[in-house]
Amino acid sequence: MLKKRLIFTLLYNDGYFMLSRNFRLQKVGDLHWLKSNYNFSHISFSIDELIVLDVTRGERNANAFCESLKSLTEGCFVPIAAGGGVRTTEQARSLLRSGADKVVVNTPLFENETLIEELASEFGQQCVVGSVDIKRTLDGVYQVWSHYGSQCLPGSAAYRIEEITTKPVGEIYLNSMDRDGTGQGYDLNMLNLLPKVMPKPVILAGGVGNAIHLAEGLADPRVDAVATAHLFNFVGDGLKQARQSLIDRGVDLPVWDIQLLEQHLRSNKTAQCIPT
């Protein structure tokens, strides 16, 4: 029986990590800041997966993003997904060579089917995460938005999602633009947009403010993983405590002992390899 997952999403913008609220970005700090203030390598022991997205709106420096990714993922022993602006197989390959195991795509899902097929055939379906940004209209109708939430796509969100499930993607990342960064909790009604039989894992994102919200998401049988991108809500030991409280509530998350690291791994470290 597969375990459910707790995912942390980092938003990268031109050298800085960001907070997002309803898709408006606010600069928080650079890589050095993230490492020194958040002790990121330690935080990564409280999550089951890491997603790093380049959300730079203008021209991107893909090399700089790959370098940040390498630096971030050193000492991070969970699956890592990366994306943002991936438009070619070569771009995807660079991310995979910089520590990513999976590539996140959003806009190409709707306008570049060839790329999705190429990615799947080159790296395998399990390597492709389809990300979908969803917004509710004033009359309560859900619609999918592409191009960083700037273009509303015609057709119902349910239709769009069903269409994506037929594409060669390994899993689907459902993000609520309305809840994004608000801390009000997930929009669980979005899950009603999913087809009755959902053949791919679903990651729910957008709106987490605390551990109870994470638990609410994970309690829904349609949800395989929950994500949060809110740096400040999980500052210090926040993520560690949130994870523990989920496990205490009986959520079936994977278990490992961080103490093992200190006791077992650090002891006689130098004796592990024979000199040549």
């Binding site: 993922t73 050193e74 000492g75 022993f77 890592i80 995979l96 060579r97 910089s98 520590g99 195991d101 791994l265 470290k269 130098t270 592990q272 390899c273 024979i274 000199p275 040549t276």
Partner: peptide, 29 residues
């Protein structure tokens, strides 16, 4: 401190050896 090991990671062009190396480095190997 890392010690040069007589461990060889076989690179035959399939998949991500980066994360394996990162884990070995972490273990001082």
């Amino acid at each position: 401190m890392t010690i040069k090991s007589n461990l060889t990671v076989i690179d035959y062009g399939m998949g991500n050896i980066w994360s394996v190396l990162s884990a070995l480095r972490y273990l001082g190997c």
